Simulated scan of single mutants.
Amino acid sequence: MKRMYLLLLPLLALLFLAACESGGNFRVINRTSYPVYVTLDDEAEFAIPAGTEHTFEVATANQHIFNPDVSVEVPVRLVGETFQIYDEGNEVFTDTTRVVIHAGKTTSVFVDPNRASFKVVNNSSQYIIQAKLFKHNFVGVVASNDTGPIAPGRFVYLPVEYATSSNNFYYYATVQMEDGATYNYGDETNILAVDQQFLITITDPE
């Protein structure tokens, strides 16, 4: 009997070790035409290019036969240039949520476009004081938004509403520079569909 116990102990140890798992994965698949930006917990923001995916490793406690269901809830900021999380309960768009990650498993998120986008890239040597976006319904301005200051070499994007056959409108924008110059962009032909972007790139005059 003692010999049987001695034989069983290594088998039980192997079974215990084989059943131990720690850590799970958070997989983000970007199916939009523009980058998606993800911040997991307190980590640095990670940009996922259009049409690609990325898997984040998330630490958890050890999972084993005596503790078989290990998970951790992680705060996530996930926003794309043409995507935002929609909170159906509150009927608002948001950039943040919480995701439950299970040890030994992969949680996948498929990011499909649900917004249009306004993006300003500052490739000039001076600050952009602000870029102001106007939504015009062919009768008058019905909404506006602005980027705030944009430093040289930086960019700002705003996910925005897209036009439909029952809600048609166009966008135009004004860009105010540090030296006082103001530039105008867009007109009544600038009608954005879902997953389309109104892009402005500012460079120094030649």
Rank of each mutant, 00 (worst) to 15 (best):
I150Q: 01
G104F: 00
A143P: 07
M177G: 08
A116G: 08
F118A: 02
Y162T: 03
D112F: 12
G180Y: 13
G104V: 06
V109L: 09
K119I: 15
N184S: 13
A151K: 06
S165P: 05
Q196K: 13
F134E: 02
A143S: 10
H136A: 07
V141D: 03
N122S: 07
T189N: 13
V194M: 10
Y162G: 04
F155H: 09
D187A: 01
S125C: 13
D146T: 05
S125E: 14
T106D: 00
A151E: 11
N145G: 03
D112Q: 10
E178Y: 05
P152S: 06
T189C: 07
V111W: 02
T164G: 04
S125Q: 13
A151Y: 07
E178V: 03
F134H: 07
N122A: 05
A193I: 10
T174E: 15
N137F: 04
Q176S: 15
P159R: 00
T107Q: 06
S117D: 14
L158E: 02
P152W: 08
F198E: 03
D146E: 11
A103R: 03
F118T: 06
S144T: 10
V121N: 12
N168Q: 13
Y185I: 14
N184A: 11
D195N: 11
E161V: 04
T147H: 06
S165M: 06
V160M: 00
F134N: 08
Y127I: 01
V139C: 07
T147I: 01
R115P: 14
S108D: 10
F155A: 08
Q126G: 14
Y183K: 15
V100H: 05
F118H: 11
Y127S: 03
A181W: 12
N114E: 11
I150D: 00
P149A: 06
A163D: 04
G140L: 11
N137M: 02
V141G: 02
S144A: 10
I200T: 01
K119Y: 14
D179W: 01
K105C: 08
G180P: 03
T147L: 09
Y170A: 09
D187G: 12
P149H: 02
A131R: 00
G104Y: 04
M177Y: 04
S117W: 07
E178D: 15
D195C: 10
V194E: 14
P152T: 09
V139D: 12
H136Q: 02
L158W: 01
N190D: 10
D187E: 14
S166T: 11
P113V: 00
I150T: 01
F110C: 08
T147R: 06
Q176F: 14
Q197A: 12
G186R: 05
D112C: 10
A163M: 08
Y183C: 09
A193W: 09
L199P: 01
I128Q: 04
V175E: 03
V160C: 03
